[in-house]
Design a protein around this nucleic acid. Sequence first.
RNA 1: GGUGAGAUAGUCAAGUGGCCAACGACGGCAGACUGUAAAUCUGCUCCCUAUGGGUUCGAAGGUUCGACUCCUUCUCUCACCA
Length: 399
Amino acid sequence: MLEEALQEINRGTAEIIDIERITKLLTAYFDEGKTYTVKAGFDPTAPDLHLGHTVLLQKLATFQKYGGRVQFLIGDFTATIGDPTGKSATRKVLTSEDIVKNIASYTTQAFKILDENKTDIVYNKDWLEPLGALGMLELASNLTVARMLERDDFSKRYASQTPIAVSEFMYPLLQGYDSVYLKSDIEIGGTDQKFNLLMGRQLQKAYGVKKQQAVLMMPILEGLDGVQKMSKSLGNYIGVTDEANDMFGKILSISDALMWRYFELLSTKSLLEIQVIKDGVVDGSLHPKKVKEELALEITARFHTQDLATKAKEEFEKVHAKSQIPTDMASFTFNETIWIAKALVECKISASTSQARRDIKQGAVKIDQIKVSDEQLQLQSGEYVLQMGKRKFAKVKVN
RNA sequence: GGUGAGAUAGUCAAGUGGCCAACGACGGCAGACUGUAAAUCUGCUCCCUAUGGGUUCGAAGGUUCGACUCCUUCUCUCACCA
């Protein structure tokens, strides 16, 4: 039992610090039913969760299965400072209204994966605001500049002469102080958080918390492009609220190399099963596309239903393999004859009429599956299916 | 506070009076090939019913027949020194 739990917890992790602590916590749970706390911090910056976030959430859910109580920490205070992100640019500061709005949608989405009864939502404003200037200075005295510059992100920026705001130096301290206040037993986060996570341990020690938190790091999930990390601002994400069809299509569009990454971090298949599939692809007995479809099915079903996932797959085949038109698409009605380029803009298929004309010129636009060559074409009354490229469709009715 | 450098399309980055809607790279979109993969090749990439017109090069003025290019002021950024 303990073995199994440890294995599941270990899965896909980038690094675990103080595994002994985790083992002890689990043992105490199995022997005496004692629970423990697992902290994870979330920035209420983007209101929508994507698969990148779910990597962490899934790990939290695993802990919940084995006696962990999740401290779902909303960084509403720290969000007003701005974290030194991987993008190495000083981040925009959010207004408190933005934050409140974001939190609401954030948590409801998170509970698609987390067990609500085993989760405490906490806000770091509650203890960081009362900390005051004195408390802040006291906190800051625990850290030297040299040590701060050890942080990879900072040292890179420092070396490349990119500016670092002093307030950004405070961020790891505050995040670490969260762990002091919450007396967290375990904290999990992305590998990019390593420095901050370790700061939690250091500060807990400095403030006399008896046992320091164990730290578990998950790798950063790459976005659809396979290079940048998945993030909404880069537009390379799969949102947990994406439509089943969308979700399926997006997963299928990732590269083969990236697919394995997604298997490891998102699939619930065991590592052994994944290895078998991998071998199958290597020796040619399995087609990579089939394998990717399996993955897409699994993930789509998790956020929707098995039924919807299967439908998404059928729909996908219909549209792409047999190049038929999709079952559902946005429809628009016009009351008079309309110029094709205008119609494309109105249906949000092309960004501007200039763009629409270019698209037509390049032979990307089809009406009822037939290529449009006349860019002056007027749509007379009737019903049409407009198509641009492989993915954009719209149903049009002209009265 | 002092000195110097700089601000050009989604990003990086050329352009120092007309040849500039502005080289190039990346990204993005589309076409071919495919498995809506990768790789490769090709085209497109400010707006406007367009062999034309309009609006762009941090902002506002000015010089000029003509300005991304020259002048003035302003805003912002960076570096070095204190």
